[in-house]
Write a protein that binds this DNA or RNA. Structure first.
Length: 309
DNA sequence: TAAGATAAGAGGGACAT
DNA sequence: ATGTCAGTCTTATCTTA
């Protein structure tokens, strides 16, 4: 991770443009001319709890600063009842008022604290995860809403808050067609893929969320940029993808694999010098998957005529 | 060295029991 | 609820050009 824009620029000879544009949505600096992503993790250099945008500050103020919650776990099970002292005598008016206050707090603790504590911790985790993944504030909000629903449905019991948070965020991304893969979220959350995907499916099922089908198109520019592929090739990929979708060969496949294969095909058509490994790596998939998709696509799309153009 | 092939294993969806 | 089945993706290893 580099510390300045200048340094980063010199490391990418593919792009000589002096103008960098901040892509708020993805948290990336992008070359204004060729679309090359210059710095990806620019937000992540400082401590996790820093707020870099107004929106983050706003949401920060709602969730509060990081707090150690562990101490809340104990000592809540005592109860306060009756307005007599230990030997059975009635309390003075002053002591009575005090007892009232205590009991009120006790009730609040019992009925609300569990939930709000949970939420506090969850929202805090969501904030951190959102920053790591550079997702927009609105997606974070959606994820928060999903988490609240999950909490209301009692889905948290037996699962970790972090896992529900990560899954909620993934749901929000999928729902808004934001190109974040499950792997992205798993990586950022430092949880197991199995755990997160299980919760994800649970959320979709029990909350009856109508999930739009995974659209590979959303991943094209992101992967192309990572692989330093030109805009012209992206255009070809988009066209091919359109055709592939029409012929129903993208369904049920990992969209990232499809895009990777198309990118590779397009590069070959244009005589670009890239390896399967590079593309697969940029896409976050394997060469084998890329090859499988490629084979299938070339077969079914009949790419002979395309080659002649 | 890159690309292709093959096999084994994991995980999840569909479907039946 | 549990089991089976087909299909997908990943990891690893080997062969080919």
């Amino acid at each position: 991770m580099q510390s300045s824009v200048q340094m980063e620029k010199n490391n990418y000879p593919q792009c000589r443009s002096p103008d960098l544009v901040m892509d708020e949505e993805n948290g990336e600096f992008v070359c204004s001319e060729c679309g090359l992503v210059i710095i990806e993790d620019v937000f992540n250099q400082g401590p996790e709890w820093r707020a870099f945008t107004l929106e983050e500050q706003r949401s920060r103020s709602r969730t509060g600063a990081p707090i150690r919650y562990s101490r809340f776990d104990k000592g809540l099970h005592t109860s306060i009842h009756g307005f007599t002292d230990a030997s059975g005598r009635p309390l003075s008016a002053k002591a009575k008022r005090r007892a009232w206050r205590l009991r009120k707090w006790q009730m609040r603790s019992r009925t609300h604290a569990s939930k709000s504590r949970n939420l506090l911790q969850a929202m805090n985790g969501l904030q951190i995860l959102s920053e790591k993944l550079h997702v927009s504030y609105s997606i974070q909000e959606k994820a928060a809403l999903i988490y609240r629903k999950a909490l209301d449905e009692g889905l948290i019991r037996g699962r970790t808050i972090a896992a529900i948070v990560a899954a909620s965020l993934y749901v929000a991304c999928r729902f808004t067609k934001t190109p974040k893969t499950l792997n992205d979220i798993v990586e950022a959350s430092m949880l197991g893929k199995r755990e997160v995907s299980k919760v994800y499916r649970l959320l979709v099922r029990t909350l009856k969320i109508k999930m739009p089908p995974h659209d590979p198109l959303a991943y094209v520019s992101r992967i192309a940029e990572k692989a330093y592929v030109s805009g012209e090739i992206q255009g070809i990929v988009v066209r091919l993808l359109h055709e592939a979708k029409h012929k129903r060969i993208t369904m049920g496949k990992d969209p990232v694999g499809v895009v990777a294969a198309l990118l590779y095909i397009a590069c070959q058509l244009k005589g670009e010098n890239v390896t399967q490994k590079e593309i697969a790596e940029a896409a976050g998939t394997t060469e084998v998957t890329l090859r499988n998709r490629k084979k299938e696509i070339i077969e079914k799309l009949d790419l002979g005529e395309f080659k002649n153009k």
